[in-house]
């Protein structure tokens, strides 16, 4: 697993959930946003559509729109305003 971006400093005692990021099963905690779930397991959330460079969110308040990810069912979700759910299947936009 690549190094993570976010570090957990508090609230570590929550129910564990499992989700899939780019096909790999990872663990998150109930109450995590999708952004937290991804960034405690990786350093990137998506690739910019134009320069294909990695992005990992920016404002965390639903304003900058720089953390949209694709879900396995084809839906898209803004990672910082979506709570993680058991079994979510997240695609971060390929490449590395």
């Amino acid at each position: 697993m690549p190094p993570s971006q976010f570090t957990r400093l508090a609230e570590r005692e929550r129910r564990r959930l499992t989700l899939t990021i780019d096909g790999a099963a990872v663990t998150a905690l109930e109450g995590d946003t999708l952004l937290t779930a991804i960034l405690t397991n990786a350093r990137r959330v998506r690739a910019n559509e134009f320069d294909r460079k990695p992005r990992a969110g920016f404002c965390l308040m639903g304003a900058c729109q720089d953390c949209w990810v694709e879900l396995g069912n084809g839906d898209r979700a803004r990672a910082c305003t979506t709570f993680v759910a058991e079994g979510m299947d997240v695609r971060t936009g390929g490449g590395s």
Binding site: Q5, F6, T7, R8, L9, A10, E11, R12, G31, D32, T33, T36, L39, T40, R43, R44, V45, P54, R55, A56, G57, F58, C59, L60, M61
Partner: peptide
């Protein structure tokens, strides 16, 4: 990745404990 707004940094801690 890793560059955030000050407000975003605060939300990570306040809202997510991260």
């Amino acid at each position: 990745p890793g560059v955030y707004t000050l407000g975003g940094a605060q939300i990570a801690l306040k809202f997510q404990g991260c």
